[in-house]
């Protein structure tokens, strides 16, 4: 009587559980597919230029004859913009997270969190647009430059975009610190700030580091805003007030003009490989930090 019999209900459920299990591994398949397709399209460029010269070559002239495929200036462009954005966003983001998590309560806290969520939602192209029409003229005037589209402009706009990631993940990490730690410290007569500084922040440090890394990852991968406001000059920038060009904006700006299967096309996919590896390493490390804390 208790023996299992196959009927249409059991067969249906067997099928649907199969689908569920398949969907479970779909994300692994996708990450694999992304890497495979980047490799498939990008690897051919290394027949023309060896990987070391590709990374360390200073000249990027993809359409001249013969072409130069060196992405060092693009890497440094990305690095400069990211560094600038990090210098602005990390301190502001982490302190805001501390303030929101530990100091504010009730309505104020709600409002601030909604604000951060709205900021996260603003499309990158809108940020870029505001950068062009509002910030760039100001930068141009203040520093008396030929153009307002500079590394600095990019860094400022990107710091705005990195903020939500940094704030929300840090805030989660801080809020996750068990209440009894705080109560113990307060019971010993520490002020709230002493408690935050000596007890809460050290226990949340793993999460905060992860938040900062993910924020930086977001900046490196960001495309539209940075393409619109950094001026797109494929040269190594020597100051924050010069235009530069990043890895992402190179792909976005040039892919439209390439012929499928051309050397230039392969080279842009190869840049994609570099970007994929960078973000993979950042996310992987950030995850280690997040994980460490939970154990």
């Amino acid at each position: 009587m208790l023996k299992k019999r196959w009927n249409h209900k059991k067969i249906f459920e067997w099928g649907i559980e199969g689908l569920i299990k398949l969907s479970g591994i779909v994300s692994i398949i996708l990450v694999g597919l992304i890497f495979i397709f980047l490799l498939k399209e990008g690897i051919s460029v290394f027949k023309i230029v060896n990987p070391i010269n590709f990374i360390l070559g200073k000249e990027w002239h993809p359409v001249s004859k013969p072409p130069d495929f060196g992405i060092l200036s693009l890497i440094l462009g990305s690095f400069a913009v990211t560094l600038g954005a990090a210098i602005i966003a990390l301190p502001l983001g982490v302190t805001s997270a501390i303030f929101i998590a530990e100091v504010t309560t009730g309505k104020t806290k709600e409002m601030l969190k909604i604000g951060i969520e709205f900021l996260a939602a603003i499309p990158s192209v809108v940020i870029g647009f505001v950068g062009i029409v509002v910030l760039a003229p100001v930068i141009q005037k203040v520093f008396d430059l030929p153009t307002g589209l500079t590394v600095l402009t990019g860094s400022i706009m990107l710091s705005i975009m990195a903020m939500p990631t940094i704030v929300s993940i840090s805030e989660d990490a801080i809020t996750a610190v068990p209440k009894r730690y705080r109560e113990a410290a307060l019971a010993l007569g520490a002020t709230r700030w002493q408690t935050i500084w000596r007890v809460v922040l050290p226990s949340a440090s793993g999460g905060i580091v992860a938040a900062c890394m993910l924020g930086i990852g977001r900046v490196i991968g960001e495309t539209m805003a940075v393409m619109m406001v950094t001026g797109n000059a494929p040269r190594i920038p020597h100051s924050l007030l010069e235009p530069a060009r990043t890895l992402t904006s190179t792909i976005a700006a040039e892919m439209g003009e390439t012929v499928q299967g051309s050397e230039h096309y392969f080279a842009l996919f190869a840049i994609g490989i570099v970007l994929f590896i960078i973000t993979f390493v950042i996310n992987f490390t950030a995850d280690l930090f997040l994980h460490k804390e939970k154990v």
Partner: peptide, 24 residues
């Protein structure tokens, strides 16, 4: 591994998705 893959999907640059979509 799945969790790691999801985190990575969330972190991949939007323009790399563009490349992937183009390629696939």
């Amino acid at each position: 591994l799945i969790r790691l893959a999801i985190i990575n999907l969330a972190g991949v640059s939007s323009v790399v998705y563009g490349l992937f979509g183009l390629g696939l």
